[in-house]
Amino acid sequence: MGLKILHSGLLTTIQDTGRIGYQKEGILVSGAMDTFAIRVGNILVGNPENAAAIETTFLGPKIRFEEAGLIAITGADLSPTINGEQVKMWRPLLVSAGCTLEFGTPRSGSWSYIAVSGSFKIPQVLGSYATYLRADFGGFKGKPLHVGDIIPVHGPSEIGAKLSQKLKLSLGTKAWCGVNWTPDPALLPVISPDPTIKVLKGPEYEWFARPSAEKFWQEKFIVTSDSDRMGYQLRGPELSVTDKTEIISSAVSFGTIQVPPDGHPIVLLADHQTTGGYPRIGQVCSAHFSSFVQVPMGKKITFQEATLPEAQSLYYQQERNILHIKRALHLKIIS
């Protein structure tokens, strides 16, 4: 099976769960913005959670399936359609050769994923399929997907083949069909245009003047249009540190909220640099990464303080949710 790109969309790339083990050499993790969504997308088509999938944002691509295959669309709802018919998300879909997947108006969230059973026939670079845009490697030829690209796909995974067989029974004369079940919505992160995001105090939190620290928790911040895969640039009350000491460059990670001298926080995301030198006021709880990255530009967020044990419990809960989804899928295959 292969996928032919008919329209590229705004920024469509191949990602996985990231390039691990090279940050000490200054090599970014990259990978999906919404790791939960890409993991579940892969699970639904029977792939390993860290398999490569397509990530797209806001204005999605138009893709033709050159051969039949099993796919799933997760993450933001960018109004996906196949052959012009509305598609339900978060479930396995069987598409026959010649089907065209397209996206329309963004309905909720920012980042959407297309997982394909068997995943793509592309080389790994430094242990990962993630596209490293700035350094031009990984993914499909190191670049965003482009009109005319044909992405080769492996045959379906074992679970994918079993699901496809079941779906073939209900396909009939239709060009595509989906299963009539989906993971319990309670297991999925909340995608909301104005979420409250749980945040841990950062290593330099105490450096911030009392009024700044209070405003950080009390006021809302807008995700500005300067935001990208490297980080979301926020606008809200200006935050200032009590003395202007610079910090010596140290590690920063996905979810680090750093405050440059202009007082406007930046939340570092998938393409963040490995180290940074700005004071770190906070760190988004891992379990809230999905809700955070899915906030569309121009929308507001509120930060709420979390303790480390609370963040850890949320983390465990999210991992258990993923295990539940996996188990539920296996039961569907057996039944």
Binding site: Q23, K24, S253, Y316
Partner: peptide, 22 residues
């Protein structure tokens, strides 16, 4: 993985695995 810097070394870990699933 770990990331050495000028004065720090930061260690990344998976809390679900380290905690033996909580």
């Amino acid at each position: 993985e770990y990331v050495p810097a000028f004065t720090t070394l930061t260690i990344y870990y998976n809390p679900f695995i380290v905690s033996q699933q909580g």
